[in-house]
Simulated assay, not measured.
Amino acid sequence: MRIGQQPGGAHGTATGHGAHGSAPALAGKIGGTGVLATALRRVLAYIALTKPRVIELLLVATIPTMLLADRGHVDIRLILVTLFGGWMGAASANTLNCVADADIDKVMKRTSKRPLAREAVPTRNAFVFGVTLGAASFSWLWWQANLLSGALVVATILFYVFVYTLGLKRRTSQNVVWGGAAGCMPVLVGWAAVTGGIGWPAVALFLVIFFWTPPHTWALAMRYKEDYKAAGVPMLPVVATEQAVTKQIVIYTWATVAATLALIPATGVIYAAVAIAAGAWFLLMAHQLYSGVRRGESVKPLRLFLQSNNYLAVVFCGLAVDSVLGWHTIGHMF
């Protein structure tokens, strides 16, 4: 469950476009040929398959969603078991993504140190590892939470692997728009774990991450578009001009902020203040990138990519604090 690959930093989203994480680099620094050193390198390689930094979005999105679903109360046990089940599901999806993308990971400089790209783990073993994690995630959530949360994790894994990775990623420049839906699923899983259903606030949070994913990922792809071009992946910055890309970034940024504001009736004044202030800041950064490209200036899209992670974290942290305090919601004030 990608919240927010990205990639990177980590992508915060499950689309896996973020940096490959620190595990491969750490594994490469472990010297020696002894049994312990070899075993440690192997363990780190399997950890790297899960793209641990990408899973940060899971923590950022799931906890505040669960707190909102049970506003004014904190069920630590349920939060922890849901996070563990969600982590296994995200690890499964990311591992299977590495299996499917091993060929292009070898070509792209940014991903060339991933375990399968450098043949640190046999492909068959990685596949079995990924499937096992997925099955364990479903079983755990069904047992500790409810069937719906487990089913949503399975749907996420299948969508990410078959629809995004195998279906869209190499065929359309809109790959991250629709494929990014997998990274939105942690909020639905968290809400379902608490309530047994899916309410409109969960849908609003789903849309926040859905609209946030394209500008976040395209900013990274602008920086690494030669990598994507070499791998034959038609990311938008590869097939469109910088001006067209940054215009789309601005549009999706506005949609992201609008989705955060749509949630305000279900929250209190703390979230409202944070969403408005952070939204204005995020919009300013997106417009600055677009204006710089229009003027022909040398821009730094990676700055927007990194700061978009901070934006999402601030919004969801504001939601968490607001939900724990449990003050009257704005919707009940009117």
Rank of each mutant, 00 (worst) to 15 (best):
85 G>A: 09
153 V>D: 09
102 A>R: 15
64 P>N: 10
2 R>I: 15
307 Q>H: 11
216 H>R: 05
18 G>H: 02
56 E>A: 14
120 A>P: 06
307 Q>K: 14
162 F>V: 12
241 T>A: 07
175 N>Y: 07
233 V>Y: 04
217 T>Y: 06
30 I>T: 04
133 L>N: 14
315 V>F: 04
195 T>P: 09
198 I>R: 00
82 T>V: 13
147 L>T: 12
236 L>V: 10
318 G>K: 05
32 G>Q: 00
79 I>D: 01
53 R>H: 14
274 V>P: 03
251 I>L: 14
275 A>Y: 03
77 R>E: 14
7 P>D: 11
222 M>A: 03
154 V>P: 06
56 E>V: 15
289 L>Q: 07
283 L>A: 12
320 A>C: 13
223 R>N: 09
96 L>A: 01
287 H>G: 04
189 V>N: 06
46 Y>S: 11
332 H>R: 15
225 K>E: 07
325 L>K: 08
229 K>G: 14
276 I>P: 06
289 L>C: 00
268 G>C: 07
270 I>D: 04
173 S>V: 09
18 G>K: 10
31 G>I: 00
216 H>I: 07
216 H>G: 02
329 T>I: 00
58 L>F: 08
262 A>R: 04
36 L>K: 14
49 L>I: 10
114 R>T: 05
258 A>C: 10
259 A>S: 12
55 I>K: 07
326 G>C: 13
180 G>E: 04
263 L>Q: 01
157 I>Q: 05
16 G>Q: 14
53 R>S: 15
29 K>M: 15
232 G>K: 00
63 I>S: 02
3 I>F: 14
190 G>V: 09
62 T>F: 04
113 K>F: 11
32 G>V: 13
70 D>L: 07
307 Q>A: 13
126 A>Q: 01
220 L>S: 04
237 P>C: 05
275 A>P: 09
96 L>Q: 04
127 F>T: 15
295 R>T: 13
163 V>Y: 08
186 P>R: 07
36 L>E: 08
69 A>N: 06
59 L>D: 02
82 T>P: 04
74 V>N: 06
272 A>M: 12
286 A>H: 03
42 R>W: 08
286 A>T: 06
138 F>M: 12
188 L>H: 06
90 A>Y: 00
123 T>K: 14
245 V>L: 08
235 M>I: 01
258 A>I: 10
169 K>Y: 01
243 Q>S: 15
179 G>T: 10
119 E>N: 11
187 V>R: 05
65 T>P: 12
288 Q>G: 11
221 A>Y: 08
311 Y>S: 03
302 L>I: 13
165 T>V: 12
317 C>R: 09
71 R>H: 12
142 W>H: 09
30 I>A: 02
213 T>K: 10
321 V>S: 08
161 V>Q: 02
208 V>F: 12
160 Y>E: 07
8 G>D: 10
158 L>Q: 08
121 V>S: 05
287 H>E: 11
79 I>Q: 00
236 L>Q: 01
100 A>N: 02
226 E>D: 15
331 G>T: 06
187 V>F: 02
